[in-house]
């Protein structure tokens, strides 16, 4: 189907973009790569009066890696993350998760900011951002604010972003070199939306017990969620079969996945349990790999 009628503007500054968004009383949308918005327009699930293109805005497409973590500009594309080999060390969970995003042509154009703002329940970037306690930098008519991922994702395709606000950057806190982690998802074809997925990481204390466990899931709720019961079952425990079984049981007991044309709720719950179990085993054997120089 063809997109509905709208106007188009391509401002050259953030301030101009924000004032254009503010001028339409909630009926203007930001477009950049357009890889989520264009299908929404084609299906007429979105029919904005005005599209504000971020194309001419400078400085939103850099990947900055410092001691305090990784900062991705809103216009960083999936192919930019894929080709930045620093991230294999600086944020291996991000690098691994992004390998699952869509197909080649979409990866050449889809952006980090677009994925976060679109907030698809199955999307990898929102899941990783939530799991890693990521922070979004958001600019709007009332100035700049920093939003925690845990306050940002509200529901299906719904975020705390105001109509006149633009995400400019996402910050993922620093990643210790010996951290244990895994990312697992399942889709019928590689690149398709995940039926379920899990991102997890934890550190080890001196007795090799898991601490600071983070377990986030996608595709099993109306937005990405952290599984606090599963995290509690992992924290303070040794990396044994018994622990992992308890974590998986806690995870399966704490989700209520929706049924749709792609999979039933019961299937998604079982799938998530399998993915989490595999992810936990993978993470346990990962420490030695991380320690060796690559």
């Amino acid at each position: 189907m063809k997109p509905p009628i709208f106007e188009y503007a391509s401002p050259s500054t953030i301030a101009e973009a924000v004032s254009l968004l503010a001028s339409r009383d909630g009926n203007a949308k930001v477009i950049s790569g357009g890889q989520s918005l264009m299908p929404m327009l084609a299906f007429r699930l979105a029919s904005p009066e005005l599209l504000v293109d971020l194309k001419q805005l400078k400085d939103l497409n850099t990947i900055i890696i410092r001691d305090d973590g990784v900062r991705l500009g809103a216009k960083v594309r999936w192919c930019d993350i894929e080709s930045d080999k620093r991230l294999d060390r600086s944020h291996p969970l991000l690098a691994e998760a992004i390998k699952h995003v869509a197909h080649y042509q979409v990866r050449n154009r889809g952006t980090v900011g677009g994925s976060l703002a679109h907030a698809d329940p199955s999307a990898e970037m929102p899941g990783v951002t939530l799991t890693c306690d990521g922070l979004m930098t958001i600019v709007g008519s009332r100035g700049m604010r920093i939003e925690k991922a845990s306050d940002f994702f509200i529901g299906p395709l719904t975020t705390s972003l105001e109509p006149d606000e633009i995400i400019t950057e996402v910050h993922l806190p620093s990643w210790p070199a010996d951290r244990r982690w895994a990312f697992r998802e399942f889709a019928r074809r590689k690149g398709d939306f995940a039926m379920a997925g899990v991102a997890l990481f934890y550190d080890l204390d001196q007795e090799n017990r898991a601490v600071d466990a983070h377990i986030g899931v996608i595709g099993v709720s109306d937005c990405p969620i952290r599984l606090t019961a599963a995290e509690a079952a992992l924290n303070g425990n040794a990396l044994t079969e018994e622990t992992f079984s308890a974590v998986v049981a806690a995870a399966k007991g704490s989700i209520d996945p929706p049924s749709d044309i792609h999979a039933s709720g019961a299937y998604r719950r079982a799938l998530l349990g399998t993915l989490l179990g595999r992810g936990l085993h993978q993470s346990a054997s990962r420490g030695e790999t991380n320690a060796s120089p690559i």
Binding site: Y8, S10, I31, G34, M38, Q105, V106, N108, R109
Partner: peptide, 12 residues
């Protein structure tokens, strides 16, 4: 870059 021309507006 290879991209899908149906997911890009001509004005972009």
């Amino acid at each position: 870059d290879a991209v899908r021309a149906c997911l890009v507006l001509a004005v972009q």
